[in-house]
């Protein structure tokens, strides 16, 4: 469905995306994870045809994506995007009038579910409510690919949970490719199936959430015992406290001696170690 082949995007002397190749062929909820400035927004804009690649090629459904040839099958909603200052109900009705396959029933139900007052004007909504409205409009669109850039910006914990519900219900109603960029991994992990980690404009890892649960773990114990075990393992980060070391591993499981504890690595720790996992020891 989406094929990114050796794509580079440069802004003057800065390389925002560096020789990225990526392939998304199945429907699903994908999480594009990266630190601020990692290249998430640039990659999304390239996928939507809002930017042209300096090098390389992007295709969606076999059609080349360029700013002069934006794909109809892709809906991209940028972080903090604004709407006309109309009543919530008018915003929904106008979106329905402008789009061919807008799911008006879904949008109206979600407006009711998330207690967005239909009579309130857009500017009267809180930041979180504004983002929620824009997200509902994007998800009610039946495009084959939906790109949401930092959709939970301004959300409190309850809204983030509601957003996950919205995402799941939308996906169940219309299975397709949903790519959500964020840096709040633990929230999105509840609904996402695939993780794409980007750092410094490069794809670090493209993996299923289940795969991380299976392959990411921490070995802690005396340094003189742990260090030899690490040889041949993919150690993505290390924390040292005195003579004790905690090594974060991503790869095959090993059976260490009893003096070494094996713990499950949280997604948050996995992400931190992947993109900034320098040893402190």
């Amino acid at each position: 469905m989406i094929r990114v082949t050796n794509v580079t995007k440069k802004y003057a002397r800065t390389t925002a995306i560096d020789r990225v190749s990526l392939s998304v062929s199945d429907s699903g909820i994908y999480c594009l994870l990266g630190r601020n400035g990692a290249g998430k927004t640039t990659l999304m804009k390239l996928l939507a045809g809002h930017l042209s690649a300096t090098e390389g090629q992007i295709t969606v459904e076999g059609k080349r994506v360029l700013p002069s040839r934006m794909p109809d099958d892709v809906t991209y909603i940028e972080s903090g995007s604004k709407q006309f200052n109309m009543k919530v109900s008018q915003v929904i009705d106008t979106a329905a009038a402008l789009q061919d396959s807008f799911d008006l029933d879904f949008a109206q139900e979600m407006v009711k579910r998330f207690e967005l007052s239909p009579t309130k004007k857009y500017k009267q909504l809180s930041l979180g409510m504004k983002t929620m409205l824009t997200t509902i409009i994007a998800l009610a669109n039946n495009s084959k690919v939906i790109l949401l850039d930092e959709p939970t910006l301004g959300f409190d914990a309850i809204m983030r949970a509601q957003f996950n519900t919205l995402l799941m219900e939308s996906y169940q109603a219309h299975p397709r490719v949903l790519i959500i960029s964020t840096h709040l991994i633990d929230e999105i992990a509840k609904v996402t199936e695939q993780l794409i980690i980007i750092d410094n404009g490069k794809i670090m890892l493209e993996v299923g959430i289940d795969d991380i649960d299976e392959k990411a773990y921490t070995l802690s114990g005396p340094a003189n015992v742990v260090e030899p075990i690490l040889e041949g393992l993919n150690c993505i980060g290390k924390t040292t406290a005195g003579s004790v070391v905690a090594a974060h591993i991503y790869g095959e499981r090993v059976a260490p001696p009893e003096s070494v504890a094996v713990d499950r690595m949280s997604l948050q720790d996995f992400f931190i170690n992947m993109v900034g996992g320098e040893s402190n020891g």
Binding site: M70, D72, S81, K82, Q83, F84, T94, L98
Partner: peptide, 15 residues
């Protein structure tokens, strides 16, 4: 001003 908001509503450039 309107173009950006129009696109955010899912409107097409041709429209």
């Amino acid at each position: 001003i309107n173009f950006r908001r129009f696109v955010n509503l899912g409107g097409k450039r041709e429209t």
